[in-house]
Amino acid sequence: MDASKIKQGIHKSKGGLIRSFVTIENGAIKDIDVSGDFFLFPEEAFFKIIKELKGIPAKRGKIQEIIEKTYEKENIQSPGTEPCDFTESIMKALEDT
């Protein structure tokens, strides 16, 4: 990632802190990284969420839809953290100037 273009967002869910690092190109998510002290089972499914988010339009509705779909498909449980918490963290990054 080119550090100059990375946007950062922080959001705290009941289950932990979610820090997002996002690069945008032509209105789409070019690259994304998330770091945090939340819990999510099964753990490996987290990388599927990240993978699915790459290349999609940087819009709240689309981001939320992709995360929810991956939760359902991978049977994800994340106590104290909802799909909308990840969306919120990413949206905060998108609003970062």
Binding site: R19, F21, D33, V34, S35, G36, D37, F38, L40, E43, F46
Partner: peptide
């Protein structure tokens, strides 16, 4: 580090 934490961030 926790599973979802990046060293350079945390």
């Amino acid at each position: 580090l926790g599973y979802f934490q990046k060293a350079e961030v945390e």
